[in-house]
């Protein structure tokens, strides 16, 4: 999945958050939506919407199903452009998912983190780039290799 968004910056002073609104006590990574109606009370007529207050949609609820196991990584390079993953994109990696064949995964390879498509056929594992300029890599025991996590979503800013 591809999303268009600008990554929020935690410390940016231009982000206006009204003081007095409870903040999420959860992990720093998952900012919760603010409940509607938590703001000031109008002195005039009561709002007709007060009986219909619902929680505003929260993107991290949609993108992060297992908060404890989810990490954000930044893409470097263009080896996966064919899969719609570009330099600078944000990877949402869920380590609780099992790395089935055909999924895009993050793996450790020779001391680095790499994002590739995992292919398992006849007991052999291959890390496939999605860019003809990059060769496929059949991983064997000689490689210092491990699956790090499964890419659940990619956030792309066009």
């Amino acid at each position: 999945m591809t999303y268009s968004s600008t990554p929020p910056r935690r410390s940016s002073p231009s982000r206006r958050i009204p003081i007095g609104v409870p903040l999420s006590p959860a992990l720093n990574q998952t900012r919760q939506a603010l409940p509607l109606g938590a703001g000031r009370v109008a002195a005039g007529f009561p709002s007709p919407a007060t009986d219909h207050v619902e929680q505003r949609l929260d993107l991290s609820e949609y993108l992060v199903l297992h908060p404890e196991a989810t990490f954000f990584l930044r893409v470097k390079g263009d080896s996966m452009t064919g899969a719609g993953i570009h330099h600078g994109d944000l990877l949402i990696v869920d380590r609780s998912l099992s790395p089935a064949s055909g999924r895009v995964v993050v793996a450790t390879l020779n001391g680095e983190l790499t994002v590739k498509r995992l292919q398992r056929s006849r007991g052999k594992l291959t890390l496939k780039a999605e860019n003809p300029a990059y060769p496929d890599l059949a991983v064997s025991d000689e490689h210092d290799f491990q699956i790090w996590g499964v890419v659940a979503h990619v956030v792309h800013t066009p």
């Binding site: 990554p7 990574q29 990584l73 930044r74 983190l113």
Partner: peptide, 13 residues
């Protein structure tokens, strides 16, 4: 600060 700062996320090639 790999998990608490947008500017310091780990990188994947």
């Amino acid at each position: 600060r790999y998990t608490t700062s947008w500017n310091e996320l780990p990188q994947a090639r």
